[in-house]
Write a protein that binds this DNA or RNA. Structure first.
Length: 428
RNA sequence: GGUGGCGUGUCCGAGUGGCCUAAGGAGCACGCCUCGAAAGCGUGUGAGGGUUUACGCCCUCCGCGGGUUCAAAUCCCGCCGCCACCGCCA
């Protein structure tokens, strides 16, 4: 949610920033309607408040007269009573339309975020080199040879878009998750294991709803009268956990992380780049999150990106970091950096982490505030989130980058104790 | 799932239709006192919104949403949550 006051005071700046993501004509139409509703809203509030004040005074006078023993004043005519009810319902209507329109507006991209789509993304850093591999086998083939992932039985269980880790594959996946958990703890984040079914308020707060309502799985009203949905990322849960709270300023920045599976509907149809575990309806991800003072946000973003890059580097994977353009970043974010690993089979880089700064956009939607030092005023915190990391993308990258000519795969050193072997070998 | 009890401010807690514009206490902040502190005394102490150059003024909020009434923390209905017992259950 954007700041209504900013729209009133500097509509031009808002329109300019939004034009990086949306058609300028559309932006103007949306802002026109929002400003009209805002004015209507304030006019109605002024009217309603005055009427309420009058009535309160009347009721008090009535009570005082009754106490004094004098005859009660006559009651206000029916017509006047109706009027307040009518005004209030008008206000409800206007406010709900305003909230809807405001809720649909995306965040303002940061100054250094350029307009455009994927083509406008810019690589800002790269780490390591592309491994020289003579005869590249792709991760699907390697998993099959090594018995790491059973796609057939996964589909048998969950339908298309699901898989099942097996044997050393399950151990590798679990080792990755555990290692990531330990790394995040060491980096100062507190571990959360949240519910996987969330109420709609959490989806709205994170900015997933209303825009991506259809991209997540909703429980039917029969089995879940309150319409819970399966979380598409732990970000939704971590943010939602602090909804409507005023955080103690001394505890900021508040660093949290969570492991959850992520459930996403994902458009049907397969993509040659996205076979195997690269895209599915359920995948594992460890998510880091920070609630900060506005002035801490820059440093926090930098720190989170560096932390995530360090994780990928410690696994020994060649990767790069890209600053996303306004159109490619998610709508709730001011600025997003993707950390992408090299996939030898496709000759492309694939996102393993998206680290983003939301400014106060999510905090506004979720009403998460802090009290200004020495002041009474509450302000919205800034929120930042990042994957650390998505193992379903890490897993194939490890297989492909560390494959050996004989079809075996070297296990990253940091995981060897946890996997229980240095090398994944066919026939085991 | 059933039955019963409960839900008040930062916390405890009073309040069962109108001077509730929420008692009292604790905590916190500031001041007085003190060499300093404690104690004591005094003052202040929530959130959201409207309006105002400003000081301020006003509205809403007693779990949430409706209703009754000139008037609701208080009465009625629905929901949510917590506690207890019963039932069911990996």
């Amino acid at each position: 949610m954007l700041d209504m006051e900013l729209i009133r005071k500097d509509r031009e700046a808002v329109a300019t920033a939004l034009a990086k993501r949306l058609d300028p004509a559309e932006v103007n139409r949306a802002l026109d309607e929002i400003q009209r509703l805002d004015q209507e809203r304030r006019a109605l509030i002024t009217e309603i408040d005055a009427e309420r004040q009058r009535r309160k005074a009347e009721a008090r006078a009535y009570a005082a007269a009754k106490r004094a023993g004098s005859a009660p004043e006559s009651v206000a005519p029916e017509a006047e009573r109706k009027q307040l009810v009518e005004l209030e319902s008008q206000l409800d209507e206007v406010q709900s339309r305003l909230r809807d329109r405001m809720g649909e507006l995306p965040n303002l991209p940061a100054d250094d975020v350029v307009p455009g789509g994927k083509e406008a993304n810019r690589v800002v850093r790269a780490f390591g080199e592309r491994p020289a591999i003579e005869k590249v086998r792709d991760h699907v083939e390697l998993s099959r040879m090594l018995g790491l992932v059973d796609h057939e039985r996964g589909v048998k269980l969950g339908g298309s878009g699901f898989w099942m880790y097996t044997g050393l594959g399950a151990r590798l996946e679990w080792a990755l998750l555990n290692w990531l958990i330990d790394q995040n703890i060491a980096a100062g984040y507190d571990f959360l294991l949240p519910p996987h079914l969330l109420l709609d308020t959490a989806g709205f707060a994170a900015g997933q709803f209303p825009k991506f309502y259809d991209d997540v799985y909703h429980l039917d009203r029969e089995s879940a009268p309150r319409g819970q949905f399966l979380l598409p990322t732990a970000e939704t849960a971590i943010l939602g956990a602090y909804q409507d709270e005023i955080l103690d300023t001394a505890t900021l920045p508040l660093r949290r992380f969570a492991y959850t599976p992520c459930y996403r509907r994902e458009a049907a149809g397969s993509h040659s780049d996205e076979r195997g575990t690269v895209r599915g309806h359920q995948f594992n991800k460890v998510e880091i999150f920070q609630f900060t003072l506005p002035e801490q946000a820059d440093a926090a973003l930098e720190q989170m990106v560096t932390h995530v890059e360090g994780l990928v580097a410690r696994l020994g994977l060649h990767h790069q970091t890209s600053l996303l353009s306004a159109g490619d970043a998610s709508a709730s974010m001011k600025k997003t950096l993707d950390i992408e690993v090299w996939m030898p089979s496709t000759g492309k880089y694939k996102e393993v982490s998206s680290v983003s700064w939301a400014g106060d956009y999510q905090a506004r939607r979720a009403a998460i505030r802090y009290r200004e030092a020495g002041g009474k005023q509450t302000r919205f915190v800034h929120t930042l989130n990042g994957s650390a990391l998505a193992t379903s993308r890490l897993f194939p990258a490890i297989l492909e980058q560390f494959q050996q000519p004989d079809g075996s795969v070297l296990v990253p050193e940091v995981l060897r104790d946890r996997v229980g072997t240095d090398r994944l070998t066919p026939g085991r």
